[in-house]
Amino acid sequence: MTSLLLAEQVLNGLQFGMMLFLMSAGLTLVFGVMGLINLAHGSFYMIGAFACASVAMATGSWFLGLAASLAAAAVAGVLVELLVIRRLYDRDHLDQVLATFALILVFSEGTRYLFGSFPLFLDVPAALSGAVTLPGGIAYPVYRLAIIAAGIAVAIGLFWLVGRTRLGIRIRAGEADREMIAALGVDIDRLYTIVFALGAALAGFAGAMLGTIQSVQVGMGEPVLILAFVVIVIGGIGSIKGALIGSMLVGLTDTLGRTLLPVAFSTILPPSDANAVGSALASLLIYVLMAGILVFRPSGLYGGRSA
C-alpha cells in the first residue's frame, strides 16, 4: 500500500461522502422541519438519474440532462408532497413508513414499466472526462473531482440558504415551533412544499451525478437511502452540519475500510482468505461506527433532541 494509493482512496471517500451529503441533507431537513420519515427519498434519486439518462440520450447533452434531473426530481417532489405527504404530517410514524413504502413500490414499478429492467449507462461528458495529475503525482479522474466540487458548492449554498436567507429563517423557525410561525403569518403549507421539493431536487442531482459513473437502474436509490439514514443517525436529525460530518465519516470509513482491511488481514491470513474476511468485515464498519456513536450520543453528534 503506497501513500499514493491511500491518497487516491481518501479522495474517493470524499467523493462518496459528498454524494451521501446531497442525499442526507434533504432527508434531514424533512425530518427536522416536518417530523416526517420519508422512505421514498431514494425514489427521487432514481428519478433524477433516469431523467438525466433519457434527456442526455435524446439531446446528446449531459448538462441538459443534469438540469432535467433537478427539474424532474423537484416536480416529482412537489407532486408527492401535495398529493400524499401533506396528509401524513399529523400521522404516527407507522403510517408514514407505510405510505412512503407504498410510494417506493409505485415509483419503482412505474419506472420498470417505462424503462424496463435493464440498466442504462451514461457517458461522462467530454468536458469532464479524462484525468488530471494532482500535486504529489496522483492521476485522478476529472469527473470525480467535479463531484467533490459540486458537493462542496451545494454544501456552501445550503449553509448560506439556511443560515443567511429569509427562507432559511423560516425553515429554522418551522423546526423550532410550527404553530408559532403559522401564527406569525408564514404560509406553512407552502414552506413545507418548498423544503420537500428542495430535498427531492438535491437527491435527483445526486442520482444524476452518481448514475453517470455507475449504472442507472430501478432500485438504485434504496442502498443510498439506507446509507443516508446511517448518516443522519450519526449526525443527528435536522442538523445540516451533522449531515455533512456524518457523510464524510461514513464515506471515508466505508471506502478506506474496503481498501485497508483486506491489506491488514493479509499480514496474518493467506491472500484469498484475507480478501474475503477483510471485505466482509469492511461492509460492517459503518454500522459499527453508528452503533458506537449511538452508545455515547443517542441523538447523534449534532442532534439537540431525539425525535
Binding site: 425530518f31 417530523g35 420519515i37 410514524h93 413508513v97 439506507i226 439514514f229 446511517v230 443522519i232 443517525v233 436529525i237 461492509s283 460492517l284 454500522y287 453508528m290 452503533a291 449511538l294 452508545v295 443517542p298 441523538s299 431525539s306 425525535a307
Partner: peptide, 17 residues
C-alpha cells in the same frame, strides 16, 4: 436507547448490516 424516527432508521440499518 432511541425512539420514533431514530428507532425506525436504526433497526433498518442493523438489518442492512
Amino acid at each position: 436507547r432511541t425512539s420514533g424516527i431514530f428507532f425506525i432508521m436504526i433497526t433498518l440499518a442493523f438489518a442492512q448490516m
